[in-house]
Design a protein around this nucleic acid. Sequence first.
RNA 1: GGGCCCUUAGCUCAGUAUGGCUAGAGCGCUUCCCUGACACGGAAGAGGUCACUGGUUCAAGUCCAGUAGGGCCCACCA
Length: 866
Amino acid sequence: MTVTRPRQPAIPENPSLEGLEGKWRAIWAADGIYRFDRSKSRAEVFSIDTPPPTVSGQLHPGHVFSYTHTDLIARYQRMRGREVFYPMGWDDNGLNVERRVQLITGTTVDPTLPYEPDFTPPVAPDRSAGAVGKAKRPVAVSRPNFIELCQQVVPQLEAGYHELWSQVGLSVDWSHTYTTIGPHATRVSQRGFLRLFQRELAYRSESPTLWDVDMKTAVAQAELEDREMPGTYHRLVFTGPNSERIPVDTTRPELLPACVALVAHPDDPRYRPLIGRRAVTPLFKAPVPIFAHGLGDPDKGTGIAMVCTFGDTTDVTWWRELGLNVRPVVSRAGTLLPTSWGSPGWESLDPAAAQVLYDKLAGRSVKQAREAIVGLLTEAGLTEGDPRPISHAVKFWANGTRPLEIVTSHQWFIRYPDREALLQRGRELAWWPEFMRVRYENWVNGLMGDWNITRQRFFGVPFPIWYPIADDGTVDYLAPIAATEDMLPLDPTTVPAPGYAESQRNQPGGFAADPDVMDTWATSSLTPQIVCGWEEDPDLFVRTFPMDLRPQAHEIIRTWLFSTVVRSHYELDALPWANAAISGFIIDPERKKLSKSAGNVADDPMALIRRHGADAVRYWAAQGRLGLDMAFDEGQMKIGRRLATKLLNASKFSLSLGRAVEGRPTEPLDRALLIGLADLVDEATEAYERFDYARVIERVEAFFWPFCDDYLELAKNRAYGTSGASGQMSAQVTLTFAVETFLKLFAPFLPFVTEEVWSWWKNGSIHRSSWPESTPLRAAAGEGADPTVLAAAGEVLRQIRKAKTGAQVSMRAEVAGVTITADSVQLERIRRVEGDIRNAGVVTAPLHLAEGAEFSVTVELAAVVG
RNA sequence: GGGCCCUUAGCUCAGUAUGGCUAGAGCGCUUCCCUGACACGGAAGAGGUCACUGGUUCAAGUCCAGUAGGGCCCACCA
């Protein structure tokens, strides 16, 4: 299909919104009006670090909401004369995507399986992208098979987003599109990692790590979610140094074999005599030291806690600060590991008995072991009282189904910068709204440990790292061999380490590839580097970085925003962007409605666009102020639709009254309108500079409706020429100014309808035209224009209409006489626009103007003729 | 436990930074009008103790202190 811009612009007889969107989308694409012109200097460019949506999620109205906000800003900046750098990305790597692909295709991964060339998943990956697999039981597939599936499914998910963004009318430059798993992003991620590794800011360490036993991977602090869960306090009885009973409350009795100490608060008189002594654990009779530590809480349980390897993050703190032993009992699959009581680290007063008891637990899941050990304890009389149910916060992976465990493993970490440096970066950044900075500061102040960027997963960016294998076959994980930058991007499982041959892979004296992949945030934190061409396109980089704007949602301040600041701080010693615009989110309508009678169509943004039109959906989104949540409301979309229709009709009418660009408005009413428009332009511009697009649409709309209802009514007869050529010219010039100004002010919000009207009488795209300025409007209004006459005329007109409505007659009914009482100033205003008032109100006689303190209008309707 | 945001008409929201006339808009509702841009239109109307309690002030929706409800972020799961 060939698309062309209309050659002979004309004003249609019956303008309609039908078909506008497809037409203009095609023309915009063909003309490349949103293409970034990289000849512009940094000062002329406005660059946007677009959030790459994760393709693991379903499309919903919230996407349209926040992405429209960014587009409003992009379109404003473009009209203001900035060359807008507006790329798009797809976040298609990471745990969530794997999970989605598994659900869609009905598979699960078993890395021990061999590759099957002819594998067919239970659910074909080319089903509709939103479909969730129906397979009852997932089929295990090999790692390479699974990556293939990901590569088949993910582009379909991305196509869905592309289609939506296109329909919504986002003015992105699609030639700058990236994916977070593509070769470019992989190269940037690996380079960023190597640079940190060389500076020892990335390091490998074996340490306690939060672990999801279902997905079998480490999880970063940023991906945690607390969930309030029922739990049970069990009171276990330890034996003190003088054989006294020491009751200890725990919600995790299954970790008793992993107990390495007891801890109480130093000021707690009950336990002060015991500090420094030893207690013996029940059942396993393991001697454990009793410590005092400030984190001990006299009010929790019995005031003394059992410290295990590792029950929670406090245990990790105590382990680190008190120099405790390690007794790992929980495996990465969430089952109890075998142990050898009596061996070093597993001391017991009765190792043989401890072993017998423990063997009853080994291999069981955490949950089963808990029940079993409670049974054993109860049987042995080592509990006190009945179990007490409680409700407490438990850490989960944000999308996980079972509580996280803490296991010890080798992981890559990125060292966090100095806290004060991070806080300083947060202060340098302009936050919209300002209060969102607090969330960043909360997070920085709560940081614990370093940033674990390792995931034991498959569909991600691999570490460009290998490890040497000693002659005895052991892998030295603490002597990593790094790739050189010229090798990137690479997969160490297919590329041999520098200095080795492929035949030496996994051989004694050879090398082994790092088996893990990077956390998705390790890549997403580099989006400015990826889109601006860091180290690869210096010309682009100097024109776009540091970027102007990071738009994003508030729930990922601690992840995406924070980690991007960290990476830019390290690599470029700079803030990655000057502004952060934080959108709120859409409040789920189901939360309000008890029944789902409205149907789930509301959940499909494509359906909303079909029903109301893209301009209308954008209008709804534009109501949402930055940082504030907004309820989903289709009613707002209907209003947006009405506005677009009105713009079409009012513009057609105004322009068909005759366009004039020569001449200076002479009529007081016209000059007043121009002053009002000039003020509106100033207010809109000022609000936009604060990213307050919601105020812009509100103010523009509030001026536009009275323009239609009052000004057009007051001026149209004059524009027809009924009052002479001078008044006609005045109205025509004013209308021409007004339509052009309104179209431009509305253009970022309603890009389709404004472009349509623009095309009737202008060349080129309105979206590449200039943002209106107030100076020419004020000049056209001229010296001494009185902006108040418009309101005065409107007020009298309202009274005349009121009389007609009260008499239940048509607005066209003739008025025989109008008497207006007002103060002298107001009367003078009315006198100056008397002709327009009489035209609009169909008043056949001159107005009677009487001076008086109280403003009043008396209307005498003409007798209805037969 | 700490913090942030919100609470204004039946509904969705402005107005609070710089306190100031009888607190605004739209939707919905009521009544009317097919008038030569638009009936996917227009006109008019009803509808609010600005969550609550104190305080500052000539004056508080707006400032201060506190309370309650809603939401979110953070926090050591014994």
